[in-house]
Amino acid sequence: MRELLQKLAGVYGPSGNEEPIRDAIQKEIEDHVDEFYTDVMGNLIAVKKGKGGGKRVLLAAHMDQIGLMVTHIDDKGFLRFAALGGISVANSICRRVIFRNGITGVIGYETEVESWKDITLAKMYIDIGASGKEEAESQIKIGDVAVYHSPFSANNDKYMGGAMDDRAGCALLVETIKSLESTPNDLYFVFTTQEEVGLRGAKTSAYALEPDLGISVDVTITGDTPKAKPMAVSLGEGPAIKIKDASILAHPKVKELMVGTAKKHGIPYQLEILEFGGTDSGAIHLSRGGVPSGVLSIPCRYVHSDSETIDANDLKNGVKLLVKILEGEINF
């Protein structure tokens, strides 16, 4: 899966600008699904029909990644920006970014600030090396979006790089599509848009598809680094089955389905309680008259940085678990 993940993580696709990553995912799956299409919000929906008698299951992983939207170009050609999704000061200082057209830049800050604590995104800018406004404007427009630019690397079974959130989830779904042999269930794989700015693509796709059950796949944070905030999730101990975050209390029956399947097939798993944040299932479970939903999480260190880090085995075991869940009959 390393190749697939590396490929997907390297494709540009900040919230609202998911066209390149959508094309890349489409290429991966088009030969493995019964039909696929893109909706008004830009979600890519791939359908795999079941043998019949099963449930309509929506599986979501978001294609978008956090980004920096240019809001102003000053006279000297420096770009001011606003956060598109959860861009933080700490993870941005002096990081490299790249625009859709390949122009790269570095994030600087107004060095007259007295203390690091006083740095805000409003005091930061992107330097693309332009000699002035005119040169900058010939390459970048107001509203263009940059993403973190960092190489993908791997050692000790760990993958590091930008956009693991949530290309790891996309890779997991793509691999699931390819690995599934037969299923009684009608499966709707939705590669969603604009998750990082408010679960927007998931909301409209859940409304349109009217599933019986929803499972989203996303990364979650861990508590296994030095003096981390307490959190009983570690890298490498298996995919995490979500109990709650700020957007959802996973439906107990979906949680039981996931835990039961993992136990039955001897797949390692962890239980996740996230005290903030949310993911697509938060929007899916409140669609129409309610959709029992859960979340399969991939433990990830340094979420929303340019060096998000995940474990190869968690990813593999995530695929295994999801395939087993989908191949079985779902009774509730």
Binding site: D39, V40, M41, H72, A82, L84, S205, A208
Partner: peptide, 23 residues
């Protein structure tokens, strides 16, 4: 002019996400 900020919200937020999505 192109609005030079990402702040604020308006009716578009709910309209865009209505039912199956709206341009």
């Amino acid at each position: 002019q192109i609005k030079e900020s990402l702040t604020g919200g308006n009716d578009a937020g709910e309209i865009q996400r209505s039912r199956g999505g709206v341009m």
